[in-house]
């Protein structure tokens, strides 16, 4: 919003012309204008949240079939098949060979297959790579580098928001949603849902 400062200055100038001799009124009007500008600025800042798509566009058919972490060979293969199909289940094809050898996702799948990498720090707002340090360190393709960790996940299958609030991160194509639990004072990622991001714009309600 590069012009905001100019807008404020010009509105203040207008206020001077409207109330040339009354400092009190100018001050009051100034407060009102600042409040209005604050409303404009705030309404321009969007709240970020992840949306779980319909069955055909998510890595699980039902909540019960959610991918458990750490991944094993089979779940890594299935997840890779989903990712390779661009997040469309009906286009999935069986993955042949070693999923960990995939040039794009191999190192990330490998990171998700090793329990010590799944420790998470879910109490301090920040980037995903501050929350899940080891996953980011091991992921050579840097899918999540610089991406925010998002704690609001909308999943219409649930009666209410899931708690503890899962940690979601976007790689631009998918939301990766990590479900975690605190055990013995340490948070640990325990399950994963990946869902395709629809890139179209949502109409302003």
């Amino acid at each position: 919003m590069p012009d905001t400062a100019n807008i404020v200055v010009s509105i203040h100038d207008s206020a001077r012309h409207l109330f040339p001799n009354t400092t009190k009124h100018r001050k009051r009007l100034g407060s009102l204008i600042l409040a209005l500008v604050a409303i404009m600025l705030l309404s321009g800042c969007a709240v970020k949240f992840a949306i779980v798509r319909e069955r055909d566009f998510r890595s699980e058919e039902t909540k019960e079939s959610r991918i458990k972490l750490p991944l094993d060979g089979n779940s890594a293969k299935e997840l890779l098949a989903f990712l390779k199909a661009d997040g469309v289940r009906t286009n999935m094809q069986a993955t042949m060979g070693d999923p960990y050898g995939d040039p794009v996702y191999g190192s990330l799948l490998h990171a998700l297959s090793d329990s010590p990498n799944l420790g998470a720090r879910t109490q301090k707002p920040g980037k995903f790579c501050q929350v899940a340090v080891q996953i980011c360190v091991q992921d050579r393709s840097r899918h999540f580098q610089g991406k925010s960790a998002v704690l609001d996940v909308v999943d219409a299958r649930e009666a209410k928001a899931v708690f503890p609030f899962p940690v979601a991160v976007s790689d631009g194509k998918f939301w990766w949603i990590f479900y975690h639990k605190n055990e013995k004072g340490t948070d640990q990622f325990q399950a994963l849902l990946v869902t395709k991001i629809h890139t179209g714009k949502v109409a302003n309600p």
Binding site: C45, A46, V47, K48, T122, Q123, K124, P125, S148, V150, L151, D152, F163, P164, F165, D187
Partner: peptide, 10 residues
């Protein structure tokens, strides 16, 4: 962009 309340709750 950062739901601070959710982090506190966690």
């Amino acid at each position: 962009e950062q739901d601070v309340g959710a982090w506190i709750a966690n």
